[in-house]
Simulated scan of single mutants.
Amino acid sequence: MIRRLTLTLALLLGAALPACVLAQDTASAPASAPPGTAPETTPPASEAENASLELVRKGDDGQERRIRIVRTGTSDETGIFTICGRQDDEPEDAPSLAVFSETGPGGVRITIDKNVIRVPLALVTQRQGENGEGGDGRVEASAGTARFLDEVPPGKTDRLSRCAVEATPKPTPDTVLVTQGKTELKGKQLVYDESDGIARIDGPISFTRPSEDGALTGTSERIEVNVDEEQTVLVGNVVLNSKGGRVSKAARVEYDDQANTARLIGTPEQPAESVQGGDVLRAQELLYDLDRNEVVARAGEGGTITGTFQDGEESGSSPGSGTATPAPVTPPPATPAPPAP
């Protein structure tokens, strides 16, 4: 698999420098600004004037998929943006480290696939390869702050300290804010790595999707956003609570707010389950229509569909009360009748 990195002009300029530099997409930082000193800036006329970068990932299918990171604020009082490049005594392939921090209401905005993620602090590590190109790097984002230091702290040897920058991540529940369409999710910490192209948001995860008839709410242990597959998955003890008292559970849920669907995926040992009143539907896979509050059961290869309904009878393929409907199950081949004597 070949993956390349394309960055905005701001990062391309900064990554080649040996020490801490400041960058804006409009190159508003004065050339004479010394390392560790925030430049004077004017309020931006558009988002393009904010500090930003793009990581571009090329997958096996040859398609480019972008991760965009923007510091929404411009005031020195609410945050910083800086790139700490390779130091003189480090190897040629030493990575650059970009720091985004913003305590204002817009925070640092990270866009991954259909998800817009807002955090106070993001650190982006990227190693340069041949011809100045490299992988799509690593992103670590959470609550926390960053600031410029007046001087390099004595005895400190880490990259940021040598650039006179201090970053203090503080992973905290409900501080990583994810928006996908109408759905809002909250987590504790985001980590994206180029090794597998998956952004993992640690939980506990809580989310809500408002509607006129009542909100869909739920929880999970974490979120995984697969950049190559353009897929968002809730992982680990996923529970969905919806209007009408329906409670649905699964080990994994592929979530797509735009398509208004949640695909609940179970295991042979722990099938996906949807319960409403006295109706219980279990299958290896349940397809949940988020707008209509309807569930369709699908049996995987060798799997089964079971249900318990309000009349007390169990069924392998019987529909529930109009909102939990198993998909048709292919009957076994008929046994031929014995030949006439």
Score class of each variant (00 low, 15 high):
Arg4Leu: 14
Gly14Asn: 13
Pro18Ala: 03
Cys20Val: 05
Gln24Pro: 00
Ala29Ile: 00
Pro35Asn: 01
Gly36Glu: 13
Glu40His: 07
Thr42Lys: 13
Thr42Arg: 13
Pro43Val: 02
Glu47Tyr: 03
Asn50Ile: 00
Asn50Gly: 03
Arg57Leu: 10
Lys58Asn: 10
Gly62Lys: 09
Gln63Thr: 08
Glu64Thr: 05
Ile69Leu: 12
Gly73Met: 08
Glu77Asn: 13
Thr78Glu: 15
Thr78His: 12
Phe81Arg: 06
Gly85Val: 05
Gln87Ala: 15
Asp88His: 12
Pro91Trp: 03
Pro91Gln: 04
Pro91Cys: 03
Asp93Thr: 07
Ala94Gly: 05
Thr103Glu: 15
Pro105Ile: 02
Asn115Gln: 14
Val116Trp: 08
Pro120Phe: 02
Thr125Val: 05
Val139Lys: 05
Val139Pro: 03
Arg147His: 12
Phe148Arg: 08
Leu149Pro: 06
Val152Trp: 10
Arg162Pro: 07
Val165Thr: 01
Thr168Trp: 02
Lys170Arg: 10
Pro173Arg: 04
Gly181Ile: 08
Glu184Gly: 11
Glu184Ala: 11
Lys186Thr: 02
Tyr192Val: 01
Asp193Asn: 12
Arg200Glu: 14
Pro204Leu: 10
Ile205Pro: 05
Ser206Lys: 10
Ser211Trp: 05
Gly218Phe: 08
Gly218Pro: 08
Glu224Ile: 03
Val239His: 06
Leu240Ile: 06
Lys243Pro: 00
Gly244Trp: 04
Gly244Glu: 09
Ser248Pro: 11
Ala251Glu: 15
Leu264Tyr: 02
Ile265Arg: 07
Gly266Glu: 07
Pro271Ile: 03
Gly277Ala: 09
Arg282His: 04
Glu285Phe: 04
Leu286Cys: 04
Leu287Ala: 03
Glu294Leu: 05
Arg298Gln: 15
Arg298Val: 10
Gly300Pro: 05
Gly300Ile: 02
Thr304Met: 12
Ile305Leu: 08
Ile305Phe: 09
Ile305Thr: 09
Gly307Cys: 07
Phe309Ser: 04
Ser318Trp: 14
Gly320Val: 04
Thr323Pro: 00
Pro333Ile: 01
Ala334Asp: 09
Pro336Trp: 11
Ala337Trp: 02
